[in-house]
Amino acid sequence: MGISPRTSSETPESQPGSATGQVDRPARKMAGEVVISVRGLRMAYGDFEAVRGIDLEIRHGEIFAFLGPNGAGKTTTVEILEGYRARSAGDVSVLGEDPGRADRDWRARVGVVLQESQVEPELTVRECLQLYAGYYPSPRAVDETIALVELAEKADARCGHLSGGQQRRVDVALALIGDPDLVFLDEPTTGFDPSARRAAWEVIEGLRRLGKTIFLTTHYMEEAEYLADRIAVLAVGQIVSEGTPQTLGGRDRGGSEIRFALPTGTERAQLPDGLGPNTEHAGRQVLVRTAEPVRALHVLSEWALAHGYRLDDISVGRPTLEEIYLRLTGAQQ
């Protein structure tokens, strides 16, 4: 049956449990199926090539995060995938069809949250959803969708009177009302305060539980880290790295980082041997990159104990996703 015609008694939370009795759930049926496939995508505006050969493959049920600085070609790529924009070259298949020639049946299966769009200011939240529900062959129940984005108590408020974060949630509800298989979320939490962002993440997590495939663009590394199964980083029209939040940019293979300040009265030359060749200095700050953090720490602490240095500010960790991202995009700028 898809997750299309549901009764209003079914809440999103009950979905995983109630799913057992349903045979034909797309979440099961299409697991692993390629939802978006892109080969050699290029897009030029006059002499300027915004997208310079992109390959992507996104499977059913994934949350895929597309990162990149402004002007990297993110929005152009997303708009091509959404069917808003023609492309210069390349093969694109979204839900098995070329979005450039997609028909209404295809549109009914795709939900879109645009980067900048207001909601109809004169209509209430419920009216707005009823309007859009009328466009789809088998929409979700209106009140249930409002509850899913946690706007139940605002259902009868005019959209124009809602806060920015609440309007964005109406946007998400509108993208879901047609019960799509694939949802594009273009910077869905830009301008949110931290608690509103948390709430939005929970809504997006809820979409994952409904079995939706999600294509997310964002500026926020912690958002990608929290939500994404897979991340691709775009810089100057090309994908410079792709991986999970844990493996992106060799994060898992780049080893650990030990940071500390040179103790007072010591010089670089006095540091012990055995810290490894990847030692960087910035003023009196020392950064040691190592694949064997325990060994390096051992050498360092032996040296410090022998000389009575305290190394009060020492820290050990992986590079943050943000550092990886800046490294990846910075190299291309």
Binding site: R104, W106, G178
Partner: peptide
Amino acid sequence: ESGILKRRRAAPIS
């Protein structure tokens, strides 16, 4: 300009 038309266009409606 406010993106309402663009979003309506995303719906399966002529």
